[in-house]
Amino acid sequence: MLRLGIIGCGRVTTMFHLNAVKASGVVDLVSISDKSSEQLAEVKGTTGVGHACSDYRELLSRPDVEAVSINTPPRFHEEMTLEAIKAGKHVLCEKPLAQTVEGCIKIREAKKDLVVLPAHNYVYTPAIYSMEEKIKQRAIGEVRRVKLNFENNLGMYGSKTDFRTKDPRGIVEDVMPHILSVAGIIAGKPERVAAVSGLCKKYEVCDNLHATVETERGVTLDCTASWTRTIPTFAVAIEGEKGILKSDFAINPYSYTIETEGSKTKISERGPGWYLDLVQFKHPSFPEQYRHFDNLIHRGGEPRITIDDEIAMLKIIQEIGDRLVTK
């Protein structure tokens, strides 16, 4: 079992990570930390974890903590990851790993033999594994374009912090990592920003964004991000020279369709029982991410997302943000 400490007991932890830890079957939660005594008490009461503290460095000092999941606002990620490495802990860190390329490079140089896994849960969605196989089999021919629409309802999310809506680049840092991480698995590292546009519908900062990005393989990414959609969606359409693969990783993570030569086939790995999990925020990508993290630590192998991948994404995110705020 992976002996885990969680740093940060906010919404992403209570909504997603606690369910994932339990469902993974490979994690033993041994310690939690948060500066908010209220949030700390809530998670301690929910999980029955044996140790809780307000100072994350106390958690890092514990010999029974083998690895940490850092689920705090982005401005703390670099410092906390470096402190965890210094304490000899493996790290799963919520996006972004650091807010700058330089910060990611520091982490890459410091980690040595420790596992540092940038957390991008959607790359562990069941449907994407199946779609990857279809691409490798050339079922739709060479991939030319990928359309990725990540649209959610920020108000419904109920965040306990407001860092997203205080930053004019907030939607870029919040949503584009989801889009670019999935795109990287399908089409290679993002390389060039071709176009950016945005508008404000509900918030004082941009809450709807469109960006066109080219990847290292010459694939065009057509990216849409929104905080104002009533029903969340992460619709992905992979267009090849001979057909199209489609899925909604948020709503139907076990299903995808393939369209070729006038025929359309839907493949589902799980029936409608999934929707009960959906309303309980039990997305299958989160426990699979923990299983992957555990495998890397205890059995080795190649990470699905590397720090170099994170650096490539961060460069594009920074450019999109710069273009957005200068418009």
Results as ranks from 00 to 15, higher is better:
173 E>N: 06
229 R>Y: 02
210 H>Q: 10
244 I>W: 10
67 A>K: 09
134 K>T: 00
287 P>A: 05
153 N>M: 05
211 A>V: 07
20 A>Y: 09
248 D>M: 13
187 A>P: 10
312 A>L: 03
10 G>M: 11
20 A>R: 10
56 Y>P: 12
23 A>L: 07
296 L>S: 14
227 W>H: 15
42 E>H: 14
2 L>W: 05
189 K>Q: 08
184 G>H: 12
305 I>R: 14
178 H>Y: 02
187 A>E: 11
300 G>L: 00
112 K>Y: 02
21 V>N: 12
237 A>I: 05
217 R>N: 15
145 R>I: 07
222 D>P: 08
132 E>W: 09
211 A>Q: 08
147 K>R: 12
220 T>F: 09
20 A>E: 02
96 P>S: 10
276 L>H: 01
231 I>V: 14
37 S>D: 13
78 E>Q: 15
63 P>H: 10
138 R>I: 04
179 I>R: 10
272 P>H: 01
261 E>F: 10
37 S>T: 14
178 H>D: 00
235 A>E: 03
193 V>Q: 04
246 K>L: 06
113 D>S: 15
195 A>I: 03
134 K>A: 04
288 E>W: 04
207 D>L: 02
119 A>D: 04
13 T>D: 06
287 P>D: 00
156 M>I: 03
14 T>I: 05
212 T>W: 09
115 V>T: 15
195 A>P: 02
278 L>R: 14
10 G>L: 13
180 L>M: 09
171 I>T: 06
246 K>C: 00
138 R>G: 00
200 C>D: 02
195 A>K: 15
116 V>R: 09
53 C>V: 13
51 H>V: 07
293 F>W: 08
86 K>N: 07
318 Q>W: 00
139 A>R: 15
78 E>V: 06
203 Y>E: 02
264 K>N: 13
242 K>I: 02
